[in-house]
């Protein structure tokens, strides 16, 4: 039964948390937040999925894409740094500013870089969470017996 509740929670909460992550990411340059925090929050959201649906199902969904995601993050970061060459130097930030309905919007290479940070953090954290949860699931039954045996042998 708990699993059903968990799935329900997962269905609702995961998208919300991911939205929060995006929100934290976007405001990061001006207020607390940013790529690291957003990435960690997003990873927690998917951890919820792992808890609800089991590691195997989650792995089938996300598993193969985690290392490429981390790679993509690194590529994005490197690209942001290289784009700076257009502005005169490696890692030089370039900003585009324009106004939509009096609101100043700005996009810059630091944000692309921050996005890369977020991807890498997600990829890394999830790689560990998935792999370890999976292994935990696979031998759950044996584990109980094992603990018991160990307890015995201690005495």
């Amino acid at each position: 039964m708990t699993e059903i509740y968990l799935r329900l929670v997962d269905k609702i909460l995961t998208p919300i948390i991911i939205l929060i992550a995006i929100f934290l990411f976007l405001r990061g340059h001006d207020l607390p937040g940013g790529g690291f925090i957003a990435g960690l929050v997003a990873a927690s959201a998917i951890e919820l999925t792992i808890l609800a649906r089991g590691a195997e199902a989650t792995r089938d969904r996300y598993g193969p894409w985690l290392i490429p995601l981390a790679g993509l993050g690194l590529v994005a970061a490197a690209t942001a740094a290289l784009l700076g060459l257009y502005g005169g130097g490696f890692f030089r930030s370039i900003w585009l500013e324009f106004y939509v309905f009096d609101d100043k919007l700005k996009f810059g290479t630091p944000q692309l870089f921050d996005l890369g940070v977020m991807f890498v953090v997600i990829g890394m954290a999830l790689t560990y969470l998935l792999r370890l949860s999976e292994a935990a699931e696979a031998t759950a039954v044996k584990q109980a017996a094992l603990e018991e045996r160990v307890e015995e042998s201690r005495l």
């Binding site: 890394m124 560990y128 292994a135």
Partner: peptide
């Protein structure tokens, strides 16, 4: 510190994997 925290998280995770 933020940099250091994140780096040590990566290293700790790796050690945990080694232990596993």
């Amino acid at each position: 510190i933020l940099t250091a925290i994140v780096i040590s998280f990566g290293v700790t995770a790796f050690i945990v994997a080694l232990v596993f």
